[in-house]
Design a binder for these strands. Structure first.
Lengths: 170, 170
DNA sequence: CGAAATATGTCAGTAGTGTTGACGTAATTC
DNA sequence: GAATTACGTCAACACTACTGACATATTTCG
């Protein structure tokens, strides 16, 4: 590969722009937006010794109380082992409780405690504020266009998961 | 804390909704959208033995050829050590070359090679397609509203970084 | 009923990305 | 000449993710 290092690697000095009609501007903005979007809860989580994974679990358990472990794995798209550690910590710290499934006793339904609900709200608050401020700043009166855009960014076969979740309008 | 496990943890069975006016729907959509947005390049990167960190470095070196190491660290908001590993790999594999700074010889200007440019484009292509499809799906004729929204999601003090980057209109 | 499938939990090992702190070197600035 | 700056590197660690294997309890099905 690097047979002749003296000439093999010629630096390209021009910036990529519209080549192939690629939307670099929006690609980058998604990166920056997400980076800062997650930074607010990250700071709060650090106080609890939690990470981003704990946040996601706590979020979905609060959004869909009674979720089973399998359902949670499916939403998060992670493996059982990845979930195990963070879920155990959240249970040990009293943020989440497990209840044996009423119909199928093999299942463990996951519910937030008052403590877990409280933390979930504390984590969501700055994110919601950031979104609201951005909508206002962009002069977007109708939330639904952004909602539609983001939803369309999700893989079609996974959009079903979103619809299961409660909507603000409900 | 868990003095009386039998009653300390009472499960909350109601889903969080509009409590405190928190926009859970959009918070969730940002998570889902970003998860799938990054999944396309992740698959390509796996073929090279690279990860998401390599992608980001490659992206910004292509967008701002001649970036110094310090500038790259500032954009990515990671530490020198985190960058070192991935940057070394990208240099060793001939995707990026370092050039001694012309004015300040302590600096190392980073440039993509033809190979690096090519990979950056390959990684950006599916992301750009996803964005374009989502805009169309959402019936958003004017990209600028989404662009403005995403930009407003970024911390104000960090927006300067975005403006340095080349715009599609240039 | 007994076997197979399912839901969950757990163990061991590994990888990628991030952190902090310290230290060394070359080059620039003062 | 001394301090600062830009960069590279070493060691140690944390978090999140992965794979593969195995155990247990429960349900389903032939």
């Amino acid at each position: 590969m690097a047979a002749r290092p003296s000439e093999a690697a010629t630096p390209i000095r021009t910036a990529v722009a519209d080549e192939d009609g690629i939307d670099f501007a929006l690609i980058e903005l998604v990166f920056f937006a997400y980076r800062d979007f997650t930074s607010d809860p990250d700071q709060i989580l650090a106080d609890y010794g939690f990470g981003r994974a704990h946040h996601r679990v706590l979020h979905f358990v609060n959004r869909r109380p009674g979720l089973t472990v399998a359902e949670l794995l499916d939403v998060l798209k992670i493996t059982k082992q990845s979930l195990a550690r963070v879920l155990k910590q959240l249970i040990d710290t009293g943020h989440i409780v497990q209840v044996q499934g009423p119909r199928d006793r093999r299942q463990r339904e996951l519910y937030p405690t008052a403590k877990g609900r409280s933390l979930a709200l504390a984590l969501a608050r700055p994110q919601s504020r950031r979104i609201a401020a951005a909508l206002q700043d962009a002069g977007i009166a109708d939330r639904s266009s952004v909602e539609h855009f983001l939803k369309a960014m999700v893989n079609p076969e996974l959009r079903a998961q979103i619809d299961i979740l409660p909507r603000d309008s409900s």
